[in-house]
């Protein structure tokens, strides 16, 4: 598989959120705005790339039976680093993401890539795979955040689009809007890729 293919597959064809339906909790929970979506996506991207690299480096030294707990420890380490760094240098984002930062550790995308790709491939390919999946995840979260913010309050990235006289359709920023917006985005992705759902 060429490097470019590894990088690009996470973006559309195997997009973790829209196609593989992984990592739904942060995708729904943190996308009240496009900015928060980007923040969460980048935090996950860092954990994905780093844990993929380390897992790929140590894969031969880890006995098969303790494989999963070892991967979890590696992932949890990088999650804690992200947690501390965000708390120190981006406190506003840290507050907005809240509980979902430590929960990156149980994001199925991260453990899934470590187990399915990094434990079988070399370091460079694993890093690229993590990067591709991370970009795909960030893209999905940013898109969902932007859609919710535009419909919900008529603004995106702090720019007022003047869609509404006063308040927007606030329900899209609240919990129900998250489910509904993601449902329609996945339907559109299905329609465009003309792939029947399972």
């Amino acid at each position: 598989m060429s490097k470019l293919k590894i990088l690009s597959k996470g973006f559309i064809k195997e997009n973790p959120v829209f196609v593989m339906l992984l990592g739904m909790c942060p995708a729904l929970g943190t996308t009240t705005s496009a900015e928060n979506g980007i923040g969460m996506g980048l935090a996950t991207l860092f954990v994905l790339v780093m844990s993929n690299i380390v897992v790929s480096l140590v894969k031969n030294f880890i006995p098969d039976k303790v494989r999963i707990p070892s991967y979890i420890v590696i992932i949890a380490t990088f999650v804690t680093i992200v947690d501390l760094v965000l708390h120190a240098y981006v406190p506003d984002l840290y507050k907005a993401l809240g509980l979902f930062i430590p929960l990156i550790v149980v994001n199925c995308v991260v453990l899934g890539r470590a187990e399915a790709f990094a434990s079988k491939n070399n370091v460079l390919d694993s890093a690229i795979d993590g990067l591709g999946m991370g970009i795909g995840f960030t893209f999905a979260l940013t898109l969902l955040g932007a859609v919710r913010e535009i419909i919900g309050s008529g603004r995106v990235f702090g720019v007022n689009l003047h869609l509404y006289q006063s308040d927007g359709m606030l329900v899209f920023i609240l919990a129900p809007g998250a489910f509904i917006a993601l449902g329609f985005i996945i339907a559109i992705v299905n329609k465009l890729s003309k792939k029947p759902a399972q």
Partner: peptide, 18 residues
């Protein structure tokens, strides 16, 4: 066809959340 599975489930979940 394209609404089957996850999309419809998510929209139903949204109404339930409402």
């Amino acid at each position: 066809e394209y609404m089957k599975g996850a999309p419809l489930a998510l929209i139903v979940a949204g109404i339930l959340a409402l």
